[in-house]
Design a protein around this nucleic acid. Structure first.
Length: 537
DNA sequence: CGTACAGGTCTA
DNA sequence: TATCTAGACCTGTACG
């Protein structure tokens, strides 16, 4: 019975190292069947990097339960202050540091030149295991490594399945907003028709709102005292031309970012498949490439439609980060407020502030380091009532200002700052202070955003396994994840299993809370919707 | 003429 | 007296 199998590319083939010390050489084409046969033992598959292995397995219909993604785990261990870096050091360290995921499909054509082939996954795995075992935080770090690796599996599976996306619906939505698709290089008719009114309103017959420079000049020539053309700047101005101009800018932006060109580029065979990169952000959040997956516009989510006979289960956790802060600081008063479905209302009900809006800006200010305006006004009251929570982020900020590394709940370390500079003259001293405070805001947010990302990875990892057990057959025959964005998931499921999926999503959230915070009573209530289209959630 | 950057806007 | 975290990505424009 093997518990670990390290996979390594050797020439054109694959060498599988079992933990009984034996190794098996396989042809590349034999791998999926071999993995499928051994998956019955539920081993942990260890590979250099999931995007170099898992897509081909999924394409062959093979799903694995567990893996170690050495690139991701290496990155975590390298930056964690809880790890003795000497134990990780070796001749391959620089190579592992530099290893990048395979993003473009064409990259696989250049397999032969892949720098990953120079790396030794067996040696790296052994070094990582030694470093982990020697860490005083091995429990939490081990959980983080497992969660990070599971996230790599989720990302590959989501790309494999794709988000159902109806090009015809998308086209209809666009047409309703700006008219039918125009010839390349032309404005849609709906936008073109808005121009005369806007130009007349500002008395600028040649005004071109598509150019920021021309728009700014035109508005100033028309008598408006503005220094930029941002929406929130223009919104403050009382002028009859502003409303149609803002409407024009919003529609133009929509067409430019998610119009027909987006559809042509990113939707194939009824699926939207962005490249998703777990751990792609320093805080541990996922990054994405292609199709602007991190900013999928709410306005067009109606084009995401579940297949015939299928449904979406859309779930998001409200106010994830304040809840995470309550858990990691052990602040029982804030956990009490988090018992409410709406944490901000919980703060109001506790008599800390008068309105929900105050609770929201106050807490967001605490997480981001805002001190101005409304946020600054209510901060002292929050600090009195929630000393542990506010103290934790305050300490993280001070540590960052001193140039120290801060860590998340599970031990992800923040990057080290560059030199803050400074000098004898007042100007450079002020600049250095500004950089210090700026870095403090970053570390303040790092501990919370990063722990939020850890909670989300644990949620995903557990949910993934629950979903698998709900169905039969291949991944895309069963309920499966199709989208994830920081604190929101979309599951595509046969309609008959939607209720079970809903229960699974909730159970996984509860499990994630236990994994991170043990018995500490902080809730992570979900908003869950079973819908036919993403827009209905 | 290709690249880099500024400005802007979308997401959590 | 300070423009509050993390991203992606589009266009127009300046630059080498």
């Amino acid at each position: 019975m093997v518990s670990t199998v390290v996979l390594q590319r050797v020439g054109d083939g694959v060498r599988a190292h079992l933990d009984d010390g034996t190794a098996h050489d396989l042809a590349r084409a034999e791998l999926p069947a071999w993995v499928a046969a051994h998956e019955a033992d539920r081993p942990r598959w260890v590979w250099d990097e999931a995007t170099r292995w898992y897509p081909a397995l999924l394409a062959a219909g093979v799903r694995v339960e567990r893996c170690t993604d050495l690139r991701l785990t290496h990155a975590v261990l390298r930056r964690s202050p809880h790890v003795d870096q000497q134990l990780l050091a070796g001749p391959g360290t620089d190579g592992w540091d530099a290893l990048a995921p395979v993003v473009a499909e064409e990259a696989t054509l250049f397999d032969l030149a892949d720098p990953a082939d120079e790396l030794d996954p067996v040696a790296e795995h052994a070094a990582q295991q030694r470093a982990l075992a020697a860490s005083p935080q091995r429990g939490r770090l081990g959980l983080l490594l497992a969660a990070e690796s599971a996230a790599a599996l989720v990302a590959a599976e989501m790309q494999h399945a794709g988000m159902p996306w109806r090009a015809d619906v998308h086209d209809r939505l666009l047409t309703e907003l700006v008219g039918p698709r125009p010839p390349a290089g032309q404005r849609p008719a709906g936008l073109e028709a808005m121009l005369p009114g806007i130009r007349a309103a500002f008395g600028q017959p040649a005004l071109n709102p598509d150019s920021q420079v021309e728009l700014l000049a035109g508005l100033r020539a028309g008598g408006l005292d503005v220094d930029d053309t941002r929406s929130w700047t223009l919104r403050e101005i009382d002028h009859p031309g502003i409303e149609p101009l803002l409407r024009y800018k919003k529609l133009l932006r929509l067409v430019q970012a998610n119009g027909w060109a987006w559809l042509d580029t990113w939707v194939r065979d009824g699926r939207f498949r962005p490249v998703l990169l777990p751990g792609g952000v320093v805080t541990g959040r996922w990054a994405a490439q292609g199709g602007g997956a991190l900013s999928a516009p709410a306005q067009l989510r109606g084009a995401a439609v579940a297949d015939e006979g299928w449904r979406f289960v859309v779930a998001d956790v409200a106010q994830l980060e304040p809840r995470v802060l309550a858990g990691m600081s052990g602040d029982t008063a804030m956990a009490e407020a988090a018992r409410a479905r709406d944490l901000y209302q919980g703060v109001v009900d506790a008599g800390v502030v008068a309105t929900r809006a105050q609770a929201k800006v106050g807490l967001i200010g605490a997480l981001y380091g805002g001190t101005r305006g409304e946020s600054g006004l209510v901060l002292p009251r929050l600090a009195r009532r929630y000393p542990a929570a506010l103290g934790l982020v305050e300490q993280a900020a001070r540590a960052g200002e001193r140039g120290e590394v801060v860590t998340t709940r599970l031990g992800r370390g923040s990057p080290r700052p560059g030199p803050f500079g400074g000098g004898d003259d007042p100007a450079s001293g002020r600049a250095a202070d500004a950089r210090r405070r700026s870095w403090g805001r970053f570390t303040r947010n790092f501990v919370v955003q990063g722990t939020g990302a850890e909670w989300a990875s644990c949620w995903l990892a557990d949910l993934r396994n629950r979903l698998w057990r709900l169905g039969d057959g291949r991944l895309t025959d069963r309920p499966h994840l199709v989208f994830f964005l920081h604190d929101e998931v979309v599951v595509h499921t046969p309609a008959g299993l939607a209720d079970e999926v809903t229960a699974a999503v909730r159970a996984a959230a509860a499990e994630a809370g236990r994994l991170l915070f043990g018995d500490f009573p902080v809730d992570f209530p979900l908003d869950v919707a079973v819908v036919g289209s993403w827009a209905e959630a």
